[in-house]
Design a protein around this nucleic acid. Sequence first.
DNA 1: GACAAATGATACTATTATGGTATCATTTAA
DNA 2: TTAAATGATACCATAATAGTATCATTTGTC
Lengths: 131, 131
Amino acid sequence: MKLITRNTDYALRALCYIAKQDKSKVSAEELVNKLGVPQPFMRKILQLLSKNKVLESSKGQNGGFKLRIPAGKIYLFKIMRIFQGEVVLNACFLKKNICPNKGKCVLRDKIKSIENDVFRQLKAINIASLL
Amino acid sequence: MKLITRNTDYALRALCYIAKQDKSKVSAEELVNKLGVPQPFMRKILQLLSKNKVLESSKGQNGGFKLRIPAGKIYLFKIMRIFQGEVVLNACFLKKNICPNKGKCVLRDKIKSIENDVFRQLKAINIASLL
DNA sequence: GACAAATGATACTATTATGGTATCATTTAA
DNA sequence: TTAAATGATACCATAATAGTATCATTTGTC
């Protein structure tokens, strides 16, 4: 089991790279060369980050990507949501069946509390803190 | 993303059910009926729990399963390992490529620290605490 | 205006993990 | 001897992850 997927990992590294540059824009090509991620995959990741307003893109010659939000406000939690969908620890699989405990499921409560803890930590990590 | 899979969830519920009984053994059939999990799937789960020395099984007529370890010593973490393999937050995907940070990767450090936290919590939950 | 260099949109494929089924062998109490 | 249980094992289905490919669109530069 992994909490962080490749997608997310690459996205974080791309964001860190962009954040560290002085330049106004970084091209997909540069990121591909510097991070060693396959080109079409890197492009897909950048496009998703743009769609989700984390990056701002400019097309055409000399185009590229830059941060749309200050690095300090790009949280790990948000990036995970983009690439891994809703983050949940356990969706109580028996919900629709005969859950013997119904409302007062101890397991669910415990899980929820771990969940909150993890979320709090993931929300505390941002791109600036990774530089 | 889910931290806990169906496998693990069903296993926990089966273990809780068994732990709550007075009887010396509980059959797969009974668990299937009480928990509403498909029979072959439940059997597979029970077999894995036996193989991993969490349950003790007896074959033959009136056979069944019972705890091999006291409920208070069956930890969530262990059950997750059995059904979800090695639990890791992030396997540093760039390890074999050109990781620009090499040994001093801030991301990895941060992840490791969340990881340890989560593990500590998962190890604190046991079957007894779920009853 | 043509062209090259960039991103946008989209659709497809491959691999792995998860979820689940099926079947035959073995044990054992009655 | 037989029925009721688990053991072993092999297989299939679905979903998530990882990755590829291609054409359309924009835009700076000559």
